[in-house]
């Protein structure tokens, strides 16, 4: 994978995430974790190589095929990527509304999830009025609200204190127990060690699989 014909950020990586598995993606800053995740959540196309998602080779997919696949993927972005003029509730509701869910159900499910992540009082707040940690929790709630088949999280606990971080990882585990495949990029070593899941370690352009 390279940007605009530049040097390859990651190359010759071969790995498979079994359906229903839980992995951490670790590695030093600049190792290519975010780039790898971008390829997986279909924000980037690999410059070469084969990427298969849900049994489909992404090279053969047209633009019209992407939305259906993206709806099966929940993404927690490192920079949250919340829509600034939408309230916390509307941001989290986005995947459901895009999928055409009924408004009554949307409000019920979103409210419940926001309460669960501790933002029951901030449902109508705009992202700019919330702290970094609160915005991150909204981003996580948006990623999981549609019960995705694959959850990709880029440093999802980077802006929250340890107690909240652990609570959020429990949420990911709950989701994983319901069948969601989870891949979390994190450099929080102590947190990663608290949860006994397999680890993909990316460093120097090489990927190493480490069992818990």
């Amino acid at each position: 994978m390279s940007y605009a014909g530049g040097p390859e950020i990651v190359s010759d990586l071969t790995f498979q995430l079994a359906a229903g598995s839980f992995h951490f993606l670790t590695g030093p800053s600049g190792a290519g974790k975010s780039s790898l995740l971008k390829i997986l959540y279909l924000a980037l196309r690999p410059s070469r190589g084969i990427v298969e998602l849900f049994g489909r080779d992404v090279r053969t997919l047209g633009r019209a095929d992407l939305p259906a696949l993206r709806r099966r993927i929940g993404v927690v972005f490192q920079d949250f990527r919340l829509i600034p003029h939408l309230s916390a509730l509307d941001n989290v509701a986005l995947p459901l509304r895009i999928a055409g869910a009924k408004e009554a159900q949307v409000r019920e499910h979103v409210s419940e999830l926001l309460r669960w992540v501790g933002l029951g009082e901030q449902m109508n707040a705009l992202p700019a009025t919330l702290s970094g940690g609160q915005q991150q929790r909204i981003s996580i709630a948006r990623a999981v609200i549609g019960r995705p088949a694959l959850l990709l999280a880029d440093e999802p606990t980077g802006n929250v204190d340890d107690a909240i971080a652990v609570r959020l990882l429990y949420l990911f585990e709950e989701l994983n127990k319901m069948g969601t495949t989870v891949l979390i990029a994190s450099h929080n070593e102590s947190l990663v060690q608290r949860f006994p899941h397999a680890r993909l370690h990316l460093e120097g352009g090489r990927l190493e699989r480490r069992t818990a």
């Binding site: 924000a43 259906a68 993206r70 709806r71 993404v75 990527r81 986005l94 895009i98």
Partner: peptide, 16 residues
């Protein structure tokens, strides 16, 4: 563009 990109990434079709 940023908002459009987010909408795409959460599964919005062009027609949406």
């Amino acid at each position: 563009r940023d908002v459009v990109e987010i909408l795409h990434l959460v599964g919005a079709r062009d027609r949406y």
